[in-house]
């Protein structure tokens, strides 16, 4: 935007210092990732002999072949897709229905219920984790997909976001549809829901990222190796470098696990940034 703002970095000596600082910070951001990628491309024996060999040829993709061939990483990715995808789909459904209900329909106790839901925004996960864990033990839901998906569905954020969004749509659209003989559900499904696509995208991205990267709940709920999500699975193999199959192999696994989300980020960067920062200020 601003032509004036943009001049904060210009041609003077001070500006060059600022520019240098930004570049330095950029190196700090990128450096560790590039280093990890370089390590993942090194043969373990060569690294053992000379750690500095990471900076030069020869590089190999052997570690990646080993990763694909031997590790559980595929089943973890699969679990993460089921959990994050399922949570996203169900969050969108529940939040849209409830958002429409709170924004547009009247029912006994609406105002009080909405305030209670808003108060739910202030409850951190840790305050309910232990009780939830016990409840899921009673229900036998640990080490299952429902067990991993359900807790995230209770988040009030989606309902809040969708309610706000529905409220911003002119009420005349509902009224026109009602005059057109549409039922309440048809008004929701055919008329209003298609208009909430931007909000669905924001909420979907935010929910998916959150679920994909969630660590605590899968850690305590998915205790069997075959039910690990990617975050828990990777963490389980990486705890002890010394006992592992070699640094290069571990790094290949990490790159393999981190790359999909980074690639998605590169493609949908604009939406993701809007979604995440938009979600934070609400």
């Amino acid at each position: 935007m601003a032509s004036h703002n943009s001049e904060i970095i210009g041609r003077s000596f001070g500006d060059r210092v600022l520019f240098g600082l930004v570049i330095l910070l950029a190196l700090v951001m990128a450096g560790p990732v590039l280093y990890v990628i370089a390590l993942s491309l090194k043969d373990n024996k060569e690294l053992m002999v000379d750690p500095h060999s990471v900076f030069h040829m020869p590089y190999t993709i052997k570690n990646y072949i080993d990763t694909i061939g031997t590790s559980n990483v595929f089943s973890w990715v699969f679990n993460s897709i089921i959990v994050a995808g399922g949570l996203t789909v169900f969050t969108l459904i529940l939040s849209s229905l409830a958002g429409y209900g709170f924004a547009r329909l009247n029912f006994p106790g609406r105002a009080v219920l909405f305030v209670i839901v808003l108060l739910g925004l202030a409850v951190p996960e840790q305050a309910v984790l232990i009780a939830r864990h016990q409840i899921f033990s009673w229900l036998g839901l640990h080490n299952s997909y429902p067990g991993l998906i359900l807790p995230g569905l209770s988040s009030a954020f989606g309902v809040f976001l969708m309610t706000q969004y529905f409220r911003a749509i002119p009420k005349e659209l509902d009224e026109a549809a009602i005059l057109d003989n549409a039922s309440r559900f048809r008004v929701f499904w055919k008329v209003l829901l298609p208009l909430t696509v931007p909000a669905q995208a924001t909420l979907g991205i935010f929910t998916f990222l959150g679920a994909w990267n969630d660590y605590f709940w899968p850690l305590i709920s998915a205790t069997k190796k075959e039910m690990f999500t990617l975050t828990v699975g990777i963490a389980s193999t990486q705890m002890n470098f010394a006992q592992s199959q070699g640094i290069g192999f571990l790094m290949a696994q990490a790159v393999f696990a981190g790359a999909p989300i980074l690639i998605i980020y590169l493609f949908f960067q604009k939406y993701i940034v809007t979604a995440v920062s938009g979600a934070a200020v609400r």
Partner: peptide
């Protein structure tokens, strides 16, 4: 058409069920 009606509650009921069992109840149970 703007009168409070119980059947309108059906739209919020799915979320509120989960909200009550997985957030409100655990909060107090904790």
């Amino acid at each position: 058409i703007y009168a409070p009606q119980w059947r309108n509650f059906l739209f919020v009921a799915p979320y509120l069920t989960i909200f009550a069992t997985l957030l409100v109840f655990p909060l107090f149970w904790g």
